[in-house]
Design a protein around this nucleic acid. Structure first.
Length: 700
DNA sequence: GCGGTCCGCGCCCTCTGCTGGGGTACA
DNA sequence: ATGTACCCCAGCAGAGGGCGCGGACCGC
């Protein structure tokens, strides 16, 4: 863990604690010296991985079956150690300590040793021995899942800390302990002596030949985590104890100069009374000590907010005044601080990303972004919704999620005033509903055009995904592995004339049509006119007869030749005549076509599309025009005229779509205007002629 | 004391993708 | 009339980019 030395001690403390408090999350921290002296980290992905990567100074128990004990891992630094304790099974141990009734985990060379009382619990005593014989690490944070021990229970525990032959004992309630007035951190003082070689069995304060003052700080862990962090501080202050009882830093009373001590190299260092900070310059220490005070003498005259330094105040005031002295040379952006400018340049111009993920290719400009990204690997979700089981990886997602509980819809469409929970939802709403030239996504495998990319994905998944289990056509035995191909194939069965006459070559698609046809061979005429008793094979023929012969207000349709105005009762007779009529064939064709165009209107977007595509076919010279339609809906309203034949009716019945297409005159009209390989534009036109999504262009 | 630099946290945004209900066409 | 299929649409969450701002450290 050489890389840790370059990092800020406090930062290191924080980071190690945070990672190791996430069992199963991040592997053993590995810090990489980055540019600008940036410390980067990666975490263990599992407890097992953490074990494998334990640094020097770490130790762990071997795990036998069935016994509970503690696993301890440390991240060592010059002045502090972080210990993480987890409940694991404990190996059986022997030796002196076992003779004393203690179980001791396996000692790793140069590491710390945790001695666990019989029974494997932490209830009565915890020993920490420095195997490396270095000076006692002034910071020992022990993280214990709160399910095992509550903070109150931990406060009642007894701890033993050994340094070489030094035993440090503390016990809650002991007279040597001085409770801190700061209840939030529960700073506790205890004493150490250098002569003790063996840990006492019962805890309590040992007799000390040379007093050392330690603080044990027991506090809850970070919010939302089940942990207790114990911090043991070695103050090394040769001052009366009563001056140390207060946890409130007092820079004037705790003269940093008096805390100076010689290091092994002979260089004098000055150590902070209240944390691990040390400096070779007393001015630095004095400046640092001020960070422990709440003194903020510099107040903003605009909002009365106070700051510790003039620089901080100036930066703050700049946020009020809008003063941004640091201007980007490559764009128009300007910032209050130089750091913001540097960060901006990395984001926008240099694209320098110093923080690189060790598990993927991700890199970020900011450490916090890498930290957030790593959660996508570890699955850590620190931000728990208080109303449901949802937990988020960052605060914003939780805040956004809370709208689902509150019903808040902060985004409003400026056109239709519809409200949305997310800006992106509103944006796509405006794009789809209120914008022109709406992008459409065309399926690469079929003609389907879909408004949203995500829906196209659903379409592809449902219709064009290969299925290992083939599906058999319901009309034949063909097997298909793609749903779209199956559907297209089954449509080919749609126009099959499955019913064939036994007596002639007649064939049709519907059984009822074959029944009617069969009567032409049997002579059966079951439909009898109630007025004149005339018999008919089909009901439609009877209806035509009744209307023509027995209804007084019946007005027969007259089909006039467009060339000579001669009238015909049957449309096909008129057509036959018209083709032979000398009065201008071109006029006839265009007139008939115009008539047809007036009659035909697509009913649905799909029909409209079919109609547009079929236009070229309809314009062929040899086309046969369909019979006129006088109005109404469906076949019952068709005025076929007296000359309508059975074949005509059957033809109409066999092509219901055609009939429908001719009778329905209103409806949505969709026409494809252009179609790129992946995107196409579609213009929708409603009944009122409003162009919904694009300009109105007539192609036909 | 001051300015530069780095850091961490918070906030907001965009892009992306999935999901399920509604409406409609169709069999 | 009814069931099914499919597109449209809003809701919602994951991931990441960018910036605001205060704090801490360090060198001058």
């Amino acid at each position: 863990m050489a890389g840790t030395e370059a990092c800020d001690p406090l930062e290191q403390f924080t980071k190690i604690k945070e990672l190791e408090l996430m069992p199963g999350k991040a592997p053993e921290e590995e810090r990489v010296e980055g540019e600008h002296g940036v410390c980067r980290e990666k975490g263990p992905s599992s407890p097992g991985e953490a074990e494998a990567e334990l640094p020097q100074g770490a130790l762990q128990t071997q795990v036998p079956e069935g016994e509970a004990a503690l696993m301890l891992a440390t991240a060592e630094e010059s002045e502090k150690q972080i210990l993480t304790l987890q409940a694991v099974s404990l190996m059986s141990e022997d030796g002196e300590l076992q003779d004393m009734g203690w179980l001791t985990p396996q000692l790793q060379e140069g590491g710390l040793q945790v001695l666990v009382p019989p029974g494997g619990g932490l209830e009565s005593l915890l020993w920490v021995e420095d195997g490396s014989q270095q000076s006692l690490h002034p910071y020992v944070a022990i993280d214990i899942p709160e399910e095992l021990y509550s903070l109150q229970e931990m406060e009642m525990m007894q701890f033993q800390v050994l340094e070489e032959n030094v035993a440090v004992a503390m016990a809650s309630g002991d007279s040597a302990l001085l409770a801190s007035p700061d209840e939030s951190t529960r700073l506790i003082k205890f004493e150490t002596g250098q002569e003790e070689a063996q840990p006492p069995a019962g805890g309590g304060v040992e007799e000390n030949t040379q007093k050392q003052i330690f603080f044990l700080e027991a506090r809850p862990g970070d919010e939302g985590r089940n942990e207790i962090v114990l911090t043991i501080s070695n103050l090394n202050i040769a001052e009366p104890e009563d001056q140390l009882a207060s946890s409130q830093p007092r820079a004037e009373e705790n003269r940093p100069a008096e805390n100076g001590k010689e290091t092994q190299g002979g260089k004098r260092t000055f150590q902070c009374d209240f944390c691990a900070f040390a400096s070779s310059r007393i001015s630095s220490l004095n400046r640092h000590v001020k960070t422990h005070t709440s003194e903020k003498p510099h107040m903003c005259h605009l909002c009365l907010k106070a700051f510790r330094t003039v620089t901080l105040l100036r930066n703050h005031v700049n946020t009020h005044t809008g003063t941004r002295p640091y201007k980007c040379g490559d764009c128009d952006m300007a910032f209050v601080t130089s750091g913001e400018l540097v960060r901006h340049r990395r984001y926008k111009h240099t694209h320098e990303k110093p923080f690189k993920c060790s598990m993927c290719k991700y890199a970020s400009v900011e450490a916090s972004k890498l930290k957030r990204h790593i959660r996508s690997h570890t699955g850590e979700r620190p931000f728990q919704c208080r109303l449901c089981s949802y937990a988020s990886k960052d605060t914003y997602k939780l805040k956004r999620h809370m709208r689902t509980h509150s019903g808040e819809k902060p985004y409003e469409c400026h056109v239709c005033h519809a409200r949305f929970t997310q800006s992106g939802t509103m944006k796509i709403h405006i794009l789809q509903k209120h914008s022109e030239n709406v992008p459409k996504y065309q399926c690469p495998h079929c003609a389907t055009v879909i408004a949203r990319k995500s829906d196209l994905r659903v379409h592809l998944r449902n219709l064009h995904t290969y299925r290992a289990t083939g599906v058999t056509c319901r009309f034949c035995s063909t097997v298909f592995h793609e749903r779209y191909a199956l559907i297209q194939h089954q449509k080919t069965h749609k126009n099959e004339k499955k019913f064939r006459c036994e007596h002639c070559s007649y064939a049709c698609k519907q059984e009822r049509h074959m029944t009617a046809h069969t009567r032409t061979h049997t002579g059966e005429k079951p439909f009898i006119c109630q007025v004149c008793s005339k018999c008919f094979r089909q009901k439609q023929l009877l209806n035509v007869h009744v209307k023509k012969c027995h209804e007084t207000n019946f007005t027969p349709t007259v089909h006039e030749c467009p060339k000579c105005a001669k009238g015909f009762s049957r449309w096909n007779n008129m057509q036959r005549h018209s083709e032979k009529c000398d009065s201008g064939q071109e006029q006839s064709a265009s007139s008939a076509k115009g008539e047809r165009m007036k009659r035909k209107k697509p009913a649905t977007p799909k029909e409209a599309l079919k109609g547009a595509e079929a236009t070229a076919e309809e314009q062929s010279p040899g086309e046969t025009l369909p019979p006129p339609v006088t109005g109404g809906e469906g076949t019952a309203a068709l005025d076929l005229g007296a000359g309508a034949t059975c074949e005509m009716i059957l033809s109409m019945l066999d092509n219901p779509e055609e009939s429908l297409e001719q009778t329905q005159t209103e409806g949505q009209f969709t026409k494809r205007l252009s179609c790129a390989p992946q995107m196409a534009q579609v213009t929708k036109m409603r009944n009122d002629g409003e162009s919904v999504t694009g300009q109105r262009t007539e192609e036909t």
